[in-house]
Amino acid sequence: MSLKTIQAAPGFQDYLPKEYQDLLEDGPFFQQRKVSELGSFKEAIEEHPMCAGCAMTLFIRLVYVGLPSLEHTVICGTAGCGRLAISQGAVPFVYGNYGDTNAVATGLKRGLDIRFKDQPKDVVVMAGDGGLADIGFHAVMHSWFRKEKFTTIMLDNEVYGNTGGQDSGMTQKGMVMKMAPTGKKFEKMDMLGLAKTAGVAYTARISPTNPTRVANTVRKAVLIAREVGPTFIQAYTSCNIEYAIPTPKVMDDAREVEKDRYGYLEYFSDEAKTYWEESEKERKRLRKAEK
């Protein structure tokens, strides 16, 4: 893994498929792209096999824009809808076994820190509510207790969408699903509260209604994880199939749910707040100096 990895060996560029040529010539590497630039550069992910209108895919696309240095990032995921798209991205993707993602990410992050002392490498876990709040719960919690320096992003579609509609810990109480005909029996898990209790440096709850805010939140979470400690983003990414949301209404649903119970929320630990304020000041100073 070096900066040279994202260039073709001499003579090979002409033989690469078009999308790889575009990635090399006009890709998102070595610079922070903005949401407003979408459509004007080759994105890390374009084609994918997700369902039409999937809000999760939109969110994943925005995550790739928000990541501060794609060329130095490894994404770790697991079974579920999300990995169908994430594994198509032009960023290394490690498929942890169901339940293992945060343990795998711990090993990756520690190994990369030993191997690349002078180059920060970001590890980002991106998996569903089943993979993180249910089956991967123990590994998630312990990575937080251990203060592992990586970001965990939960793609919360509030259902096991990939396997036909079983309720997950993140499903709303009383929700009747195809595979939960008598309704969900328990409250939705308070993962944000658990994260705070476990000492996570930065947590955020977000819906994909405001693309710039999604990209900024991801960038913030990854930068804080790099310097301070674990960070967590819980993102509402509805499953329009299992929740029978008509494709054109997916964003309307996201806006309604955001207004009702999924409003933007962020929490900083004291250390994270100090770090972020100082680094923001520094960034502003540098921007001024550039002008």
Partner: peptide, 9 residues
């Protein structure tokens, strides 16, 4: 061989 990982490739 396709990517310029290092001088060897």
């Amino acid at each position: 061989v396709l990517w310029g990982w290092n001088d060897h490739t």
